[in-house]
Amino acid sequence: MERQSLLWFFRRYQHYDVLVAGGGISGVQAALDLANAGFKVLMVDRRPSIGGHMAQLDKTFPTLDCSI
């Protein structure tokens, strides 16, 4: 019985170690570092693409690098 309910539990939910809310530069960095440290990460962004505001910036100061 217990085994059954456990199975149900695992089928019912997708399991992740960490949820990262927001796919801007900060969220992306957090997700990458977590995944590289052996964790399964779910990243959620409310926009249709990750990238956040930084993707909208043309260049960043002070090096004037392009953002993408």
């Binding site: 939910y13 399991h15 992740y16 170690d17 960490v18 949820l19 809310a21 927001g22 957090a30 779910l42």
Partner: peptide, 9 residues
């Protein structure tokens, strides 16, 4: 979904 921790970015 089930998660162990949450990062708010």
């Amino acid at each position: 979904v089930k998660v162990g921790a949450v990062v708010l970015s």
